[in-house]
Simulated scan of single mutants.
Amino acid sequence: MNYEDYLRRVPKAELHCHFEGTVRPATFAELADKHGIALPTREVDRLYDYDSIEGFLEIFGLVATTIIDREDFARVAYESLADGRDRGGLVYREMFFNPTLHTRRGVAYATVVDGIVDGIRLASRELGVECRLIADVYRQDNPAEAVAMVEQVLAHRPDELIGLGMDGAEAPDPPE
């Protein structure tokens, strides 16, 4: 076995991964087609082309608009965990997700979290990969939106949801 194969096979824990950033390009395109969402290109291999953090965040936001129903969330979570296992020996992940990216578009919080949990539980049963969730407060949300999101998390928190975090562009909105 060569060194690269050895490194891929070593069991891994991933402690910082964003759900919306793990969508396969082909899944991104399929979900966009399913929900009638226009993409900047039909070339699947170019969907994630960007050259700055702002460009990444723009694509990240577009990806989020294609994940709408519970099955979409479950599919993305399962595929993400399968990819981690298959490409790098993933056995445990703590995955961030941003509820407000979805709830502000009219997707119910329960649809988001229950769908992700469906995918996590299926990956645990079928693949032996464990995953826990961290709900992110989006830095660019105002404090009232952040408080409302945290209240939703506290009201509907499956065992897989273990914490709160923060995401979004730091330059315009540092943590303090």
Rank of each mutant, 00 (worst) to 15 (best):
E14S: 12
F28E: 03
G84P: 06
E151L: 12
E43S: 14
V23D: 00
Y48P: 06
T41A: 13
Q140M: 09
P25S: 01
Y48T: 04
V147L: 14
T27C: 05
R139S: 09
T22N: 01
Q152L: 15
A29V: 03
V137I: 11
I68W: 12
F73M: 03
E151N: 14
C17S: 14
L81C: 02
E151T: 10
A32P: 11
F60T: 00
N2M: 07
R105G: 14
A38Y: 06
V112K: 05
R104H: 14
V147C: 03
V117C: 12
D167C: 03
D83K: 01
F56H: 06
P11T: 13
D141Y: 09
K12M: 08
D136P: 01
D86T: 02
L57A: 10
M166F: 13
A148P: 02
V113Y: 01
A146S: 10
G165S: 11
P99A: 05
N98I: 00
R104Q: 13
V147S: 08
A169Y: 10
A148H: 09
V44K: 11
I37S: 06
D83A: 02
G61D: 10
V113G: 03
N142Y: 14
H16Q: 15
D141Q: 13
A171M: 07
A148V: 12
K12A: 06
Y78D: 04
E4Y: 15
V76A: 04
G36H: 14
R46E: 11
V147Y: 04
D86P: 01
A77N: 06
E151H: 08
I68M: 12
V91A: 08
R121L: 09
I37D: 07
S80H: 00
R70S: 05
E20C: 07
R105I: 11
D173C: 11
G128V: 04
P174S: 02
R24L: 05
R75I: 01
R24I: 00
E54Y: 10
Y3V: 14
I59F: 03
A144D: 07
Y92V: 08
E43T: 13
D114Y: 06
A144E: 10
I53E: 14
F73R: 03
I37W: 11
V153W: 04
Y109G: 02
S52Q: 11
L164K: 12
V23E: 04
G84L: 05
T111S: 04
I53N: 13
E20G: 03
K34M: 06
D173I: 09
A123S: 12
G21F: 00
R157W: 02
G106V: 13
L15I: 13
G115N: 13
